[in-house]
Simulated scan of single mutants.
Amino acid sequence: RVHLPKALSGSRPLCCGRTFLSAGLVDEARVELDRLVAAFAPFAARGVPIVGLEPSCLLTLRDELASLRKDDDAKAISAHALTFEEFLVREA
């Protein structure tokens, strides 16, 4: 079963904040990551894989998220973040 989490508030799509980080806008990136964590945390807590198609976004979840947030939700999301290819290999 596939879930497509949406932001809990507002109509903007979820974003990993990578574009803000690449421009040195750390506070703006944190806002985006906070929105993403709020939407994805319930899935990560249940062990649901978080699969993405854009490698740079997945690497943001694995690396920068853990640097910007030290909480359990961020750690769980980081631990469950997979590229689509990694997910297929794991399932095979």
Rank of each mutant, 00 (worst) to 15 (best):
A92F: 10
D71Y: 09
R90V: 07
A74S: 13
T19H: 10
S67T: 11
L88N: 01
P13I: 10
E28K: 15
S9K: 10
A79T: 05
L21W: 11
L59E: 09
R46G: 04
H3F: 09
S11H: 06
P5W: 08
H3M: 01
L53T: 14
H3Q: 01
A39W: 04
G52L: 07
K70L: 13
D34S: 15
I50R: 02
R69W: 12
V2N: 00
L25M: 14
A92H: 11
E86Y: 01
L33A: 05
V31M: 00
L65S: 01
S67H: 14
A29T: 09
L25P: 00
H3S: 00
A92R: 14
S11N: 13
F40T: 13
E32L: 11
P55D: 07
L59D: 04
E54F: 08
A76K: 15
R18T: 09
L65Y: 01
A76M: 11
C57P: 05
R62W: 04
G47V: 08
A92Q: 12
P13A: 13
D73Y: 02
V31Q: 12
A79H: 06
V2Q: 03
V89L: 08
K6D: 00
L88C: 11
R90C: 09
R46Y: 10
A66G: 09
C15N: 14
K70G: 13
L21N: 07
L53I: 11
C15Q: 02
G17E: 00
F20G: 00
S22I: 07
D27L: 14
A92N: 10
D27W: 13
D73M: 10
L4C: 06
V48P: 00
G47P: 08
I50V: 06
D72S: 15
A79S: 13
G52H: 09
K6G: 05
A45W: 05
S67G: 10
T60I: 07
L88D: 03
F40M: 13
S11D: 07
L8Q: 09
F87C: 12
A44P: 13
S22M: 15
G47T: 04
V51P: 01
D71Q: 08
P49K: 02
S56R: 15
R35V: 03
R46E: 14
R12H: 07
A7Q: 08
I77A: 02
A23E: 07
G52M: 10
T19G: 11
R46F: 04
H80E: 06
R1W: 05
G52N: 03
D71V: 12
S11Q: 06
E54W: 12
D72N: 11
